[in-house]
Nucleic acid binder design. Sequence first.
DNA 1: GTTTGAGAGCTATGCGCTTAGATAGCTGGT
DNA 2: ACCAGCTATCTAAGCGCATAGCTCTCAAAC
Lengths: 365, 365
Amino acid sequence: MAKAPTVYDVAERAGVSIATVSFAFRRPEKVKESTRELVLTAARELGYVPSASARGLAHGRTRALGLLAFEYLLESADQPANSGASQPDSAPLVDPDSDEDFRHFPLYVDEVQRGVELECWRRGYALMVGGRGHANTETVLADIAGRVDGLAIFPNTVPAEVLRRIAWRIPVVEMSCKSDQDEINHVTVDNVGGMRALTEHLIVEHRLRNLAFVGDTAGSDQAERFQGFRAAVRAAGLRIPRKAIAHPGGVIRYADVIVGDLLARRALPEAFVCATDQEALALMDALARVGVRVPGDVAVTGFDGIAAGRIVRPILTTVRQPMELMGRAAVDILIDQLDRPDQPPVSRQLPVRIALQESCGCQPK
Amino acid sequence: MAKAPTVYDVAERAGVSIATVSFAFRRPEKVKESTRELVLTAARELGYVPSASARGLAHGRTRALGLLAFEYLLESADQPANSGASQPDSAPLVDPDSDEDFRHFPLYVDEVQRGVELECWRRGYALMVGGRGHANTETVLADIAGRVDGLAIFPNTVPAEVLRRIAWRIPVVEMSCKSDQDEINHVTVDNVGGMRALTEHLIVEHRLRNLAFVGDTAGSDQAERFQGFRAAVRAAGLRIPRKAIAHPGGVIRYADVIVGDLLARRALPEAFVCATDQEALALMDALARVGVRVPGDVAVTGFDGIAAGRIVRPILTTVRQPMELMGRAAVDILIDQLDRPDQPPVSRQLPVRIALQESCGCQPK
DNA sequence: GTTTGAGAGCTATGCGCTTAGATAGCTGGT
DNA sequence: ACCAGCTATCTAAGCGCATAGCTCTCAAAC
């Protein structure tokens, strides 16, 4: 790799000062047309590419936003780059059926991330995505935060304390509902309303009486969904479950245990209303393994609207979040705060949609 | 936003020099444990976050890689951030069936991108993703290139000339088959072998004789697939189609026209072997609209293995690329070149797998 | 008692760019 | 002939960090 040419090289070649070179790129109107041509030509000939580091340092702005990705699946993230590449010349293998891949991607966060990307580009920003990798979250976060003008993060990925320190310097937007009073921006969806409407559907249309809520309710979004569920159950005059069905190790990993336990206690409800699609899918798998039919024996619903829910049979009934829109809204808020600093933190709520499919007993199409 | 504290602020507070602050972070072994504590405490209290711009400038390395995203769908990318967010308090709408979203995401490139991300993080790099937005490709590319230590790009997104200039400064890897002799790295899949195997399947298992290849064959990957198709057809002693079925405006957009034309000429083949999944899906839609049944009247196959192919009925038979792996391999190559400069360009080919599903006439499961 | 050498920390410089303010070259009015 | 008012360009001062090379301290070695 040759040493990269700098403004100095371009300036020398074009016979102007470095200031003119800089202006030729950033303030075309401040430079006479002819000299601008001169500079640009010299730059092209030398293969000059301005250093964003230097610009960021001098200007104080990087024109990049950051996103701390949510790493839901560290196991898979740890696979080395060359696994599977061992037999480059072997005959192609026939692989009749595998939807396993789509169980892991794209998830909720991936679609939100896409929204973040698209909006960043539309607004002329670059996007820096960071992930945990092997380092601890705080290190990675600082790494990203040091490179960008604003930061978007997924819920429950960063300690509030750390977040506050960063929000003190650059705008930060969290893509989840607001927890307590914080000085961070938020993009949320209508968790309560969505889950309430879905639950009402089960009660009114499918005449189900014995509904169970499944999922970890620690996250604030999940808690809101549980709240929406209870509101619907209460409004229908049904018995309100004290608590959600869950497992300390996570519903997804221990779906079999949960199902086995309910079966043993002959306590299978008429419907499993799950806090997330992923939990619903894991539960449907577990139910299938022990021969419980969905939706015949029991209805199952999710929340999010991930692609995997459309691939499985029965298709998952769920509440679809406007994921791309959430990402876009987050970026919109960040850029807004950059353009007009010292604004109070914003909280923007987006609507959701109910997607009635097969797993609740509906016959779509 | 308060002004961000710098090494100077931290140094002053900790009562040391800025060099010590810097060392405390980057070369922990060079400062005494106690002073390191002192510095880190001061840093934490001030909310110090090192500026990556400054570090990049001083050190010459950014520890970030770049990816120029492929923007297959500029229309959708142009939607503003607040569309749809207008009625935040309205009741959730019921939306019985919509898989439209998954027609656009995730596509082939999105899954590759995910591989790039995961591998970057695993290796301790951040990833800068750039997209066209409104600016022209060259501008955006320079913007990204100026920020990173290495660059990954999708095929046919950047003029070779521009690429060469950048590759002269930082390692570049293109995720497609190598076109001519160029000095950039490549990650490829076995386009020829995969398409040949799939075509053979149609000929041998389904006893089809009249096969048509559909798709733009300008891209080098697509050309290889066409080549694999012809090889299989020739080996079976069948008539080799002179050229692929295509349309100047793109198969995807003009699938209806193509189908209408074939129908009018009564020239419907027994199988449409498409160069990409997206083209296959567009074709299947067009066929459905005019009442041609798949796979009853005609078989259809794709290439890529995108999620949307699993969502439609019939499920699309296709050749699955190891997309995540491609992304990982690209990063692997880049980091390798960074660690050991002045190596010759690499080209790594990955194997593919045939996914036999419903659209070719198979009965999976 | 003097010398050596190994820490431990500091000084000083430069990375490549932006930009405020200085300067030089014109035009046109008086 | 002189000055005001432009315009086009330049000079110079950082931006925040990394690091080579230096200084200082103190203990071990002679």
